[in-house]
Design a protein around this nucleic acid. Structure first.
Lengths: 145, 145
DNA sequence: GTAAACAATTGATAATGTCAAGCATTCTGA
DNA sequence: TCAGAATGCTTGACATTATCAATTGTTTAC
């Protein structure tokens, strides 16, 4: 057997990447549902590492700003996030995750067992290689069309 | 510099994988919108390599069967899919992509330029390595929770 | 200091999602 | 065989997510 395995076609690689992405999304959505969150709500909560203006959140979620209003309304009704006025610009409202919100999204991430378990099958070298390759891929993929 | 780069923490790897998945989804959704398809419609169309019962499609999309009825209704109204009776089981309706449906999803895939372009930055060896690593990850990730 | 630009919200409407109920068909087992 | 359970799809009721146009309040630019 060769040290360099057969080169996959680009289509094969695209398809495999899509399959991984789909599986990961399923895992995330299932964990979120387990905590009474819709996928969208969980996705929004996952962005809130720090205070974030509504507009910025809309950009991250790639949707209209008016949509974010409703999503945050529902999260706020459950005390998972707060709206805070921005001290520098009175037009802006910053969204902040509450302690409860941070805790719940932490658990969701923790419970992505399919994804987590799959990564456990890689040894240290493989993890490092995968990390390096995906890291090279990332900037190109995040370019705006 | 070392031949074996630093081993990433599992959390770092999870985060990177999530970022790649998100970027890929954005790319797919944008290409779909360019052809007047919602993300969900495109996702449904993408499953139709062959005839597929409504129920099977619901399983693949991880949603209720009644939801699929509406999605397929709208695709059928645009002549992108057809419902065909199953010869072996009269309860079943098989969904089949029309020529137009196959063509439109082919173009959507073709126009995922961010993803495609990112993969172009890898040489043959790197592609092969990435393909092998992701291929090892896949079965574990597709396990049901 | 007025006009343009921007942030967030509201209201209208469509698409997506769940659940419960229904009809038609197939399967199961006594 | 045939009554009842299970299955596949649809419908109806409803909540969520999405987009767009219009509004209000606040900055920014000229």
């Amino acid at each position: 057997m060769s040290a360099t395995p057969e080169t996959p076609t680009k289509l094969q690689l695209l398809e495999l990447l899509a399959a991984i992405g789909t599986a990961q999304w399923r895992d995330f959505a299932a964990a979120a549902a387990h905590h009474g969150l819709t996928s969208t709500q969980a996705k929004a909560l996952a962005q809130l590492n720090g205070p974030l203006p509504m507009r910025a959140l809309a950009t991250l979620l790639v949707c209209d700003a008016s949509n974010v209003t409703g999503i945050i309304d529902r999260l706020e009704a459950r005390d998972l996030v707060r709206r805070e006025p921005d001290p520098a610009d009175r037009r802006v409202k910053n969204v902040v995750a509450t302690d409860e919100g941070r805790e719940i999204i932490r658990r969701v991430r923790e419970e992505m067992q399919a994804t987590s378990g799959a990564l456990d099958t890689l040894d240290a070298d493989e993890s490092a290689t995968l990390y390096a390759l995906l890291g090279r891929l990332r900037p190109g993929m995040e370019k705006s069309a």
